[in-house]
Amino acid sequence: MIELTNVSKTYPNGARALVDVNLKIGKGEFVFLVGPSGAGKSTLIKLFYRDETPTRGQVQINGKNLVRMKEREVPYLRRSIGVVFQDFKLLPNKTVFENVAFALEVIGVSKNEVKTRTHATLELVGLANKENAFPHELSGGEQQRVCVARAVINNPALLVADEPTGNLDPETAWEIMDLLFSINKRGTTVIMGTHARAIVDKMQKRVIAIENGRVARDEEIGGYGYDT
């Protein structure tokens, strides 16, 4: 499903974020990306939803080449990829319902369909009773659920999360992990960058470690592997 071939990324200021990375991730996999801060995890994650393009090498998702892709095709790629952020990126003056419905409205879905699908998705993430709340009225875990709901409402083939539990306490973090896991079970590929040792060790999933911009380790059933 995802294939990176000889991918290198050098930023205009000369920083080498990724060096000759080769990766293959299959459909329906759950993958942890681990590694020290500044090792290139976030850059790698940004390649998946084409927030960045590599300076060298090819990125393919579902047979589409993200490097040769034209600018006007990018929106259509993004509709098949959900993104979850550490800081949630919710719109503060929209309600929970509006924040999630936003993802459908901006791609021109009909009003009735927006209503039904938003209700269903909020049900899925367990926020059906908070539809009319504003983000500042919610706990961190609840805000992250809204962000996940927005990311999955289009039934994306791929869900990308950059430290989704980074701002949450351990208990809430596990709730979010359960949610991501259930989404993965429905067939969505999940790639998650994280520093959460306990979660990675417990989940027993594929672990890819990035160090100095290179793939340092890639294990089918791995652990976090760093001392913290």
Binding site: Y49, L77, R78, F102, V106, R150
Partner: peptide, 14 residues
């Protein structure tokens, strides 16, 4: 808002 619109796949003209 623009950043999120673009992330969820809104076209530029939109």
């Amino acid at each position: 808002e623009i950043q999120i619109m673009k992330l969820v796949g809104a076209s530029n003209s939109f």
